[in-house]
Nucleic acid binder design. Structure first.
Lengths: 193, 193
DNA sequence: GTCTATATTAGGATAGAC
DNA sequence: GTCTATCCTAATATAGAC
C-alpha cells in the first residue's frame, strides 16, 4: 500500500484552497505542490493535463461537495419551511465566510469569473456545477409548493454568490447577513404564487 | 499639443477591457500595451506604480463611471417607481451582458474576487467602489420611501453581481433576466415596510 | 512510479538611447 | 519625455535519473 492516493488528494485539496483564495491564474503549480508538500513531478503524474485538468477537477469535486451540502440543508429531513431553511443557509454562510478569514466560501466563484471568456472547458465545468446546485435547490423548493422553483433557486444562488463578493471585498459578513433577509423575501414571495 | 492624454487613456481603456474579460492576474502588462497600441515603456511612464497602480485606477475609474450610470437610472428624473426602475436596470444589464459577448458587464467583479485576500490596496479600492454604488442606490430608495434602504440596495447589488456570474458561466442572459423579477420582489417587499 | 533538474516561454519592471 | 532593448524572476511543462 502506497501513499499515492494521499498525494493526489493533497494536491487537489491544496489547489482548491489556493484557487478559492487567489483565483486560478494567480496560483502556480509550484505553489500548489509546495502547499501540498508533494514533489513537483507528482502534479503532472496525477494530472497529466496540467493546470487545466487540475482546475477542472477542483471545480467538479468542490461542486459535488457543495451539492451534498445543499442536500443536507434543503433535503427532506431538513425542516419543512423553505423560507427559514434559506435564511438559515445564508446565516451559516456568513459564519463560514468569517471563519475562512474571508476566503471565498464558494470554491469556484473566482475561477468561474476568470475563465468564463477564456477557457471553454473550465467554463463548461463551472456552468454544470452551478446548474447542479440550482437543480437541487429548485427540487427542494418545488416539493415545498413553490411555483417558479427554478427561477427562485437561480436568484437565491446568484444572491449568495454576489453577497460573498461584497463580503470578501469588505472583509465583513454583513452583506451576507443582509442578503439572508432578501433571500427569505424572494422565497416567501414565490411561495405566495 | 501632444498625444499624451490619448496614450494614457488608451492604456487605461485596454486594461479595463482585459481585466473584465480575463481578470487581473491573467492579464499581462505586455498584452495591455499591445491592445492599447502603445509602446511598452509608456505603461510605466504613466503608471510608475506598475500593474497594481493600473489596477487601482481601472477600479476607481470604472467605479465612477458606473456610479454615474446608477445616477442616470435611479436619479430624480428617472421615474418614480423604484420597483420598476430596478427591474429595468436588470433587463438592461442582461442586454449589456449579451452585447459584450459575455464579458463581465461589471468591470471590477473578477478583480474584486481575485484580490480580496491578496492585494490589500486593490481590495480597499473595490470595497470603496461597491460602497459608493450601494450608497447611491440606497439614497434613491430612501427618497422613494423604502425603509431599510441600505440593506435593500446591498442585496440588489449582490444579486446583480451574482446573476452576472451565472450568466457568464452559462453564456446566457437568462440568469440576469430571472434575477430581474427577484430584484423587483426585494424592492417591493422593502417598500411595504 | 517518485522525484529533481532543466527547457522554454512569459511575467513585471528598468535602463538608457534618442 | 518616447520608446526599445534587456534584466531577472517565475510561469508551465517535460525529460530522465533513481
Amino acid at each position: 500500500m502506497t501513499t499515492t492516493g494521499d498525494t493526489r488528494a493533497r494536491i487537489l485539496t491544496a489547489a482548491t484552497e489556493l484557487f478559492r483564495r487567489q483565483g486560478y491564474a494567480a496560483t502556480g503549480m509550484k505553489q500548489i505542490v509546495a502547499t501540498a508538500e508533494a514533489p513537483y513531478g507528482s502534479a503532472y503524474h496525477f494530472f497529466p493535463g496540467g493546470k487545466a485538468q487540475l482546475g477542472e477537477e477542483v471545480v467538479r469535486t468542490s461542486g459535488a461537495a457543495y451539492l451534498a451540502l445543499i442536500g443536507e440543508l434543503f433535503g427532506e429531513d431538513a425542516g419543512t419551511d423553505p423560507v427559514e431553511a434559506t435564511r438559515e443557509a445564508f446565516l451559516g454562510a456568513a459564519a463560514t465566510l468569517e471563519s475562512l478569514d474571508f476566503a471565498d466560501p464558494c470554491p469556484i466563484a473566482t475561477v468561474a469569473l476568470e475563465v468564463a471568456s477564456t477557457h471553454e472547458g473550465l467554463r463548461r465545468a463551472t456552468a454544470e456545477v452551478f446548474a447542479s446546485w440550482i437543480d437541487a435547490l429548485a427540487g427542494s423548493y418545488a416539493s415545498r409548493g413553490i411555483g417558479s422553483a427554478r427561477a427562485t433557486a437561480t436568484s437565491v444562488i446568484a444572491l449568495l454568490e454576489g453577497a460573498f463578493m461584497l463580503g470578501r471585498a469588505n472583509r465583513s459578513p454583513e452583506p451576507v447577513l443582509t442578503a439572508a433577509s432578501a433571500a427569505a423575501a424572494i422565497v416567501a414571495g414565490a411561495l405566495r404564487n
